[in-house]
C-alpha cells in the first residue's frame, strides 16, 4: 500500500503544488546592491528605523537586506554577487509549526507565510527557526520614540507619521514582522480586477522592491502560471533556490552569475 504523502500533509513531502502561487526571481548578476529595494520596502511597509545602537545589535527591521560576502585575499579578493535576502515565502516554512499561538499561519488562499500581528505574543520562536534569518522583532515602539516628535502647543507631533502607508499595520513593540510579498498590493490588484470582472494580469502590479529596482533585477508574479515572466525567468538554467536541501520549498529563485 502506498500513502500519498501530499494528501496526509506529511512534513518532507514534495507537494505537487510546490510551485506555489506568488513568486519572485532575483537576478544576482545585475543586482548592483544599491539599496533602492530596501528603501522602497521601508517606505511601503511602514518599517521602523531603529537607530545606531539597536542596528549594531542586529535589531534592524529590514524586511529585505542585501548580503555581500568576501571571497579570497587581496589582490585576488572578490565580493560575491550581491544577494538580496527576504522572506522566501516557503511552501514548507520552518517558522510556521513552531508558533505556539498560530500567529504565523500559511495562507491557503495566497500561498504565503503570514504574520498576524494581533495574534503574535513575541516568543520569537519563528525567527529562531528561520534558516534565512529574515524575521525581525520589534524591540521597542520605534515609531513613537518621543524624541522623534516635535512639541507643538504642548502636544507631541510626529511629522514622520504623515508618511505611513494606511494599507499596512504599524507594528508595536513585542511583535515579529517580515516580508509579506506586499500582500496589500496583491489584495488591491485582486480587488480591482474583480471589480472589473477579470483576472489579475501578469505585470499589472508588483512589489515595492521590484518596482524600485533600477536594474530591474527583481521580478514578481504568479509562479503557477507558466507563461508569466517570473515563471519563465525562474526556469532558466541559472536559477537556484537557497537552502533548497532543507525542503523549505522557497518561492524566491535567485539567478546566479554566468
Amino acid at each position: 500500500m502506498t500513502v500519498d504523502l501530499n494528501l496526509v500533509g506529511a512534513k518532507g513531502a514534495i507537494a505537487e503544488a510546490a510551485a506555489g502561487k506568488w513568486g519572485m526571481t532575483i537576478d544576482q548578476d545585475i543586482c548592483t546592491g544599491c539599496q533602492a529595494c530596501v528603501a522602497a520596502c521601508a517606505m511601503e511597509n511602514n518599517i521602523a528605523f531603529v537607530g545606531e545602537e539597536d542596528a549594531g545589535y542586529g535589531r534592524t527591521q529590514h524586511w529585505i537586506r542585501i548580503e555581500r560576502f568576501w571571497d579570497g585575499e587581496y589582490p585576488h579578493v572578490q565580493a560575491t554577487p550581491f544577494q538580496p535576502m527576504l522572506c522566501q515565502q516557503c511552501g514548507h516554512a520552518p517558522c510556521e509549526p513552531v508558533c505556539p499561538v498560530f500567529a504565523t499561519p500559511h495562507s491557503p488562499a495566497e500561498d504565503l507565510n503570514l504574520q498576524v500581528y494581533n495574534r503574535c505574543v513575541g516568543t520569537r520562536y519563528c525567527a529562531n527557526n528561520c534558516p534565512y534569518q529574515v524575521r525581525s522583532f520589534n524591540w521597542r515602539d520605534y515609531h513613537t520614540v518621543p524624541e522623534l516628535g516635535n512639541m507643538v502647543n504642548g502636544a507631541l507631533i510626529f511629522p514622520l507619521h504623515n508618511q505611513l502607508n494606511p494599507d499596512v499595520t504599524v507594528r508595536r513593540r513585542g511583535v515579529m514582522e517580515k516580508c509579506t510579498f506586499c500582500i496589500q498590493r496583491i489584495h488591491k490588484a485582486q480587488d480591482k480586477a474583480k471589480s472589473e470582472g477579470r483576472e489579475v494580469e501578469d505585470g499589472e502590479f508588483t512589489t515595492a522592491c521590484a518596482q524600485a529596482c533600477p536594474a530591474s533585477a527583481i521580478t514578481f508574479g504568479r509562479v503557477d502560471h507558466p507563461e508569466s515572466l517570473v515563471s519563465q525567468l525562474a526556469h532558466q538554467e541559472r536559477g537556484v533556490k537557497h537552502l533548497e536541501e532543507l525542503n523549505t520549498l522557497p518561492r524566491v529563485t535567485y539567478l546566479k552569475e554566468g
Partner: peptide, 12 residues
C-alpha cells in the same frame, strides 16, 4: 471560503 477565512485577507 478559503479566501474569506484566510488570516491574510484582513490581517497584514
Amino acid at each position: 471560503r478559503t479566501k474569506l477565512t484566510d488570516c491574510g485577507t484582513c490581517h497584514y
